[in-house]
């Protein structure tokens, strides 16, 4: 069986209510990092990790997995609406916890869609299929769906890689507006996006955290020459 070391010697702190971007070329372990944090990696294949991943001082493996995954949401690169209505998509998480009261659900759906800046576009067609939304709308639907389970951290894995500039801007706006409520971890291939939205930036290369710092510092005065090469577009 193939054994590969995907991440090594990673040590980073993510402060509450900030936007942290994780940048780096393909295959540098960015997606794996997110999947280790919410333990989604455990559903896939055999893997081993050493070291600790702490969420408010609690190692994530000590938390109940469903609690962990509600506290730390994950948005995927391609928007994945569940087949079903817009309403059912947002209500999916709450229903898993046996919230079934109609009015309560309706309020929660409205709140979540408003938070993701999608309410005005879909309020008249909540009972139509989520698959009919545009790509950008679908991605905001995914954000709303995550918000509906009341997370503390929202991780996004290249959430705008398939979206047009306007949809991208809408998602970035949502992130900035919602910084007060949530902590954001944004994996992105787009260094300009990282520069636009982040408070801090972590640069990964071949599974190693090369450098982490304030966004302005990373993009103007990187300490490591490899960071400099990447953010200035010489490699990557």
């Amino acid at each position: 069986m193939g054994k590969r070391l995907i991440l090594r010697g990673v040590n980073l702190d993510i402060e509450a209510n900030t936007i942290v971007s994780v940048i780096g070329p393909a295959h540098s372990g960015k997606t794996t990092l997110l999947r280790v944090i919410n333990r989604l990696i455990e559903t896939q294949r055999e893997f081993m990790r050493s070291g600790d991943v702490l969420l408010d001082d609690a190692e994530v493996r000590r938390l109940d997995i469903d609690v962990l995954r509600r506290r730390v949401g994950l948005i995927f690169a391609t928007p994945v609406p569940l087949p079903g209505t817009i309403f059912d998509n947002i209500a999916y998480g709450p229903r898993l916890q046996h919230h079934h009261r109609r009015q309560q659900l309706a309020d929660l759906v409205e709140h979540s869609l408003r938070s993701a800046f999608l309410w005005d576009e879909v309020k008249d067609r909540l009972s139509t299929s989520a698959l009919r939304l545009s790509g950008g709308q679908q991605q905001r639907l995914c954000i709303a769906r995550t918000i509906a389970v009341d997370p503390e951290v929202i991780m996004m894995d290249e959430p705008t890689s398939g979206l047009d500039p306007i949809s991208t801007a809408q998602i970035e706006t949502a992130m900035r507006e919602l910084k007060k409520q949530y902590t954001w971890v944004l994996v992105t291939n787009n260094t300009k996006q990282a520069a636009r939205v982040s408070d801090k930036v972590a640069f990964f290369l071949s599974g190693e955290l090369i450098e982490m710092g304030e966004a302005a510092q990373i993009f103007t005065k990187p300490k490591d020459p490899r960071t400099d090469d990447y953010v200035s577009g010489r490699i990557g």
């Binding site: 989604l40 469903d66 999916y92 998480g93």
Partner: peptide
């Protein structure tokens, strides 16, 4: 599709 399952897991679904 496998990613539908992942969505459910990442929303806390058993």
């Amino acid at each position: 599709p496998y990613n539908l399952r992942e969505v459910s897991y990442s929303l806390g679904g058993a």
